[in-house]
Design a protein around this nucleic acid. Structure first.
Lengths: 202, 202
DNA sequence: TTGTTTACCGAACATTCGGTCAGTTGACAA
DNA sequence: TTGTCAACTGACCGAATGTTCGGTAAACAA
């Protein structure tokens, strides 16, 4: 082996990974369409053209970022704990993992949740996201059939409201100041499953 | 009086109101930054320049749309039912009215919830929105102090998760197919206040 | 020293952007 | 018939967009 270190840091500079990380940050601040390559260049401390040395273009950056979020979601639903056992327990596990993933890959998931389908890249991402949503909706339906969650509200609606809460995390969570992923998941499950009201008999 | 009708519809065509309505629709489909004046013109069935006969420009369209949503929110919190009585009842009323307003002015509120602060207009809207959020957070705090909602979760967090559910309505509600505002509000209050789980003792 | 590779710059590209303006059209009043 | 005016067109502007390309400085290998 001629190279002493497998990844030789020969020269100081950027790489596709660091460009992506910075880009996603700026995309989330300004919005994808509101971000120019000039904005990205400024954030990276290089000129516009330097970006094209590392990545093929703006839309590829979006595509890679969205995949990073979506891959996480699908790894989750492929897990055994999402597929076997009581539906209510699977649902709780998936919600907890969703919160974890959301915080773990916050900028990537944030970007995903703002996609509107303006390009082929965005439409493909939306399609994968809908597939994930269908899985969750199935879980909620099973839990209702099972009798472990209330059946007087449509399962589709329950799914949307539940993940409305979960997904809202991207809009206000601050890694520095906020609670840990597990604390947040605890609070969220307490609220959504247990309800807000103190006296359930009222 | 020379004119027989106060508002004479002399000629067929657009007016500031119809342009705004169409514009907000396209903004929500494509995103504000992703929408060009050419896109708007196409949706209106006129040329780009015709738009400038009715409205001063793109950002004014955004500004007027955001005001329409924000004015609704502030009318709500100014109502007596939001300011007097038990905190829990005020909170329930505000949540119910929020759902109503969201559906009543769906495209305008949808646009508001996607604003990121890219311009002075957007930053001003965000500031007003934060003021509304502070009011809600105050209500939740009062309800917790009052002892009518659970106190084992931070009121700020409760507010965010609760309105995460409420605001998510803009992401999936379809006026044609969906339930009425009141039905939706009922379901949402049942879920958020009562909780998902069937057996609260478990 | 010489040559190669990595990481970048600066200038330019075609296209699209939001916006302007001098006209044109057609329904109406007189 | 003539004139008025709301509503619009089409040509155009300068600026900004994403992307390309020729060149180049620095680090390394020979």
């Amino acid at each position: 082996m001629a190279t002493p270190t497998p990844t030789r840091p020969r020269r100081r500079g950027h790489d596709p990974e660091s460009v992506l990380a910075t880009a996603v940050g700026v995309f989330n601040e300004r919005g994808y369409d509101g971000t120019s390559m000039e904005d990205l260049a400024r954030a990276l401390g290089v000129t516009k053209s330097a970006i094209y040395y590392h990545v093929p273009g703006k839309e590829q950056l979006l595509s890679r970022a969205l995949d990073r979020a979506l891959d996480g979601l699908f790894e989750m639903v492929a897990d055994e704990r999402a597929c076997s056992g009581a539906a209510i327990e699977r649902l709780e596990w998936v919600v907890r993992q969703s919160v974890r993933l959301l915080i773990d890959r916050l900028p990537y998931v944030t970007l995903l949740l703002r996609v509107r389908g303006n390009s082929g890249t965005e439409q493909a991402a939306l399609a994968r996201r809908r597939e994930f949503d269908r899985f969750i909706s199935g879980l909620v339906t099973e839990a209702a059939v099972e009798g472990s969650i209330r059946a007087d509200v449509d399962p589709g609606l329950v799914t949307r409201l539940l993940f409305g809460s979960v997904n809202s995390i991207t809009e206000w969570y601050q890694p520095a100041r906020g609670a840990s992923a597990d604390d947040l998941a605890d609070a969220l499950l307490k609220m959504t499953f247990g309800g807000l009201r103190v006296d359930p008999a009222a």
